[in-house]
Every structure is written in structure tokens, then in C-alpha cells.
Simulated assay, not measured.
Amino acid sequence: MAFSHRDHHPQRSAASHPEDVGRTLDFGEAFAFAQQQVRNLITKAPGQMPTYTEHGTWALTDDPWAPTWSGGFLTGMMWIFADRTQDPWWRQQAERYSELLEPRKADTGTHDIGFVLEPSWGRWYDLDPNPRGRDVLIEGGRTMAGRLEAPGGYLSTWVDPGSTFIDVMMNVGIIFRAAAYSDDPELHKIAVTHCHTTRRYLMRGDGSTLHEAWFDTATGEFLRSATHQGWRADSTWSRGQAWAIYGFTTAYEHTGDHSMLDTARRAADYYIGHTPDHGVPPNDWNDPSPAQPFEASAAAIAAAAMLRLAGCLSSTADADRYRDYGLRILTTLRSTEFIAADTPGWQGIIRHATYHQRNGLGIDESVMWGDYYFLEALDLAAGQTRQGGPQV
């Protein structure tokens, strides 16, 4: 019998109000704590770009599963601090770490070029447009576009030429940037093609997502779904769902294509409809016995994605719905059940995240993207407040 995504809603009754545990930091306190944690890391381990913690301590080793992809998140946090504080020290660190990442612009061994360069060189260019940053982003976008498998119309993963992930939607933005900066319509077409292939094969009718799709590289025929990090191939991995919300929102921002906006909204509605009121899902909604009640990095990504999605909507009611949900997640993550401000010795910012459950990596820990997207969501929410938006 086919698995139904309506059969299970785990964790609705368990840990229903984790935000009530301990205290809740205000925005200023949360930013200050995040700065302290990042400063400690880069002072004690200069030049290191870890992926996840082990017992709360950053693991200063190469990523054992995927080509290293988290340096952009650490660097992106420095750029957010530099922008918010105008502190020359943060600007110096952000530039230094961005320069360490510059060689990745030509890295053909990963599908995560956008993850590496968008938070680092992308934020640098957004704050200070300059020819060097433009050239780095163009080359990075061209490298990412080189992963196109033309028969299937998708960007392949590092796993195999026949594979694509929902995660890859987070890496099309740099191709759109490169297309715009170099006035290259072919690059734009490649990014749009991948988005439409993802909509067709990795999005289900109920708004949920596949983690991985496999294709025949010769004919482009879709072969099967799979997962590396979810419960089953036909279930819904929560971080992948958050990538979809964010990735299709980004695609809409670059194209104005309302099919992208509709896809982002359907993914967001699925997330909201299957997650407890506090906004933090388990690793996979369909897992009947999840090992952990929370995957906080999925929530952090979703918070940033919901706030960005709200900014794309003209209807006040629709925008308010996604914005309010993003702020609700932030309230939960600012509680000391999640933010590590009252956990002595913990080196990350947000606890209860998971990197790779199946491989036993970074389970119930901090992960660098969880910290980054939490901070991005804080920054987005604070910016909306400064512009007269909702109080946070």
C-alpha cells in the first residue's frame, strides 16, 4: 500500500511548548550572544570552517559525508555582524574569510557553490558592489551551471550525474546572479530549467518534497525517488522542505515567475500544516518514531524563508500569515531550550539541530547553517521592524 503523508503527524503532543522552557532572549541579546560565539570560534580556531558540533564543541575536521560546504555560513554571519555593528573588526574578518573561500568559485566537485559563495561573496557584493566580487560570483555561477544534465534538465549533485537534490534549489541563485551580472541569457535559462524540473519531479501534489530524484542521464527519464537523510524515499525530510520554501522564493525574486511563488507557498503551507505550533519539526514528519523531537536547523531555514516569502507578497493578509509564522519560529528559537546562552561550554548558537541522522553525524547538536539562517532570520525581522513592520 502506498505511504500516505496524512497518516502520521508525530510530535504534535510531545514537547508542545519548548519555548516556555527557561527564558527567551530579546533580539539584541540574541545578536550579542551570536557575536560572542562566532568571535570565540574564529579567535580560538582561526581559519577553520566547521560543519557541526560534537557534544557542543565544533568538530574541526573535514566533513565526513559531503564536500565541505559550510564555510559560507560562518562567513555570512560575519558579514551580518559587520553590517549591523559597523565594527571594522567584523568587516576585516568577513573579508578575510571570504577570500579563503574564493578558490571555491571554480570547484567542480560540489553542487553547493551557492551555499559557499552567496552568504560570503554575495553579501560582500550586496554591501559593497565591486568588480572583484562581481567576477567571483560570475565564475561561481558559471561553475554551478556547468552541472547541467541537459537531457533531464537538472543540475546534478556530487553524488552522481544522475542525481539531483531538493537542496540544489538553494544553489540556483548564484546562477541567476551570474546571468544578470554578465548579461548571459543562457545562464538564466539553465537556472530556470532546473527550477521547473524540480517543480515537476521533486515537489508532490500536497506541497511536500522528495529529497533526491534519479534520472537516466542519456534520455532524461525520471527513474526513482530516494533519500539520504529522511525516513524513507516517499516521506518528507523537514530540512529539504525548508530548502524548497527558501529556494523557490529566491527563484521568484530573480524571475518574477508566479509558478515559482506558488511552489514556495505550497511548500510553506505544508510545513505549517505538519509542524507543531512552536514551529520546530522533527527530522522527518512521517517517521513514526523519530529519534529526536526537533530539527532546529530546518526551523531556522524556514523562519528566514517565511520572512522572505512574506516580502514577495502583495496581499497584506497573505504576507502577514507567513511573516507571523516566521516570527513564531524565532520566538521559539530564542528560548534557551534552543539558543545556547544558558548552556555553559556550548560553542554553537542554536541547539537541537541535526546534520545527518542516518550517518550519525551532528545529531541534536549545532550546525553551521542552522546558526546562519537563525541569524539571517533575526536580521530580516529586525529590518522589517526598523522599516515600520511588526514589532519583534
Rank of each mutant, 00 (worst) to 15 (best):
F248S: 06
S120D: 03
A341K: 00
G256K: 06
E212A: 08
L187Y: 04
T217F: 02
I113M: 11
M170H: 06
G207D: 08
H9G: 00
L380K: 06
N171T: 13
E149A: 04
A233V: 04
E139F: 00
R39L: 08
F338G: 01
D167F: 04
A244P: 04
E102S: 12
M78C: 15
R12E: 12
M306R: 00
G348N: 05
M144A: 15
G109M: 05
Y154A: 06
H356T: 05
T75M: 04
W65I: 14
T249E: 08
A267D: 02
I174H: 01
H9Y: 14
E19I: 01
D277I: 09
Y201G: 06
E149I: 14
A317E: 14
Q292A: 08
Q391Y: 04
I363G: 01
P50R: 06
Q48R: 14
M260D: 10
E139S: 07
H188Q: 14
R323V: 00
T316I: 10
E186M: 10
A305M: 01
R328N: 14
G140N: 07
L100Q: 14
L210N: 11
G162H: 09
S163N: 15
I245S: 04
G76S: 10
R6L: 13
H211K: 08
R199W: 07
S120F: 05
D371M: 07
G141A: 05
S225P: 01
I174N: 03
P64D: 09
G122R: 02
Y325V: 07
Q48C: 11
E149H: 05
W237A: 06
L117A: 10
W124E: 01
Q86L: 11
L333G: 06
G173Y: 00
H196Q: 15
Y201H: 15
P344G: 06
H254Y: 13
T68E: 11
Y252Q: 06
S259I: 11
G388D: 07
P46H: 08
R265M: 15
S314T: 12
A300E: 02
G47T: 09
F73K: 03
H9T: 06
V136T: 10
